[in-house]
Design a protein around this nucleic acid. Structure first.
Lengths: 116, 116
DNA sequence: TTCACCTGTCAGAAACTTCTTACACATGAC
DNA sequence: GTCATGTGTAAGAAGTTTCTGACAGGTGAA
């Protein structure tokens, strides 16, 4: 996990997921231990639907993982915890990742130069 | 540069700057050597005003640096190059950065401001 | 039943990002 | 002068992100 690099597209998704103050705080809070949605929402001071949205974004980037569990008194609780990611960002690493980007232009390939 | 960590707010700016396929390609291209705006625009296949906007975003995040120079034939050329950044993203590092986020909530929390 | 918890989703407003097109200016060469 | 090169900026459309408020369901306990 710690060693394999994401593709360019995955990297963009990951960086976009982290590029938000609230999501950074969610990650920071979960770094202190797993928690369930409603409690986490109170902890951070955010509405539950909003937190739900942000957790989805973090989860689809692979930065947190959720699991639905039953508490002792029978309630369904969705616990989230961080996955142990480890990204190293340097110009060289980004250049490497950029080579696997899909979506530069409609048509990519062997440099179609201008032909008027 | 390589050793000092950005504040939470700076980190968000940096991550947001990198969380875009086109900007990732700009960084990747500049990693191969410095270049001036018009040439870089042709290289990547993007309009110059668009590239200008993205370069501003990268520059204000501190990821690239631009300098206006005079070419041999007297034209003003704006050259951009990569600053050698080195970011290490782990849950612990993000938690650390999140402590210096300004803008936790509208109501609570002292928002330390920068000097004007 | 009613209450206090938990889960999820949807619609719409507001704000931001991205991109194009058009304009402004400069220089040197023809 | 005109042309080709370079610079920068501004207006507006189109799309995405962020957030609130309201809705749906579930459980166990009083």
């Amino acid at each position: 996990m710690t060693g394999d690099r994401p593709t360019g597209d995955e990297l963009v998704t990951i960086l976009a997921a982290l590029a938000n103050p609230l999501r950074l705080r969610i990650v920071a809070t979960l770094a202190g231990g797993r928690d369930y949605v409603s409690h986490l929402a109170r902890e951070i001071g955010v509405s539950r639907p909003l937190l739900h949205m942000h957790l989805q974004r973090l989860e689809s980037a692979g930065l947190v993982a959720g699991s639905l569990e039953l508490s002792d008194d029978g309630k369904a609780m969705k616990y989230y915890e961080i996955t142990d990611f480890d990204l190293h960002l340097t110009a060289a690493a980004l250049a490497e990742a950029a080579r696997t980007l899909t979506a530069p232009d409609p048509e990519k390939g062997p440099a179609p130069k201008e032909s008027p």
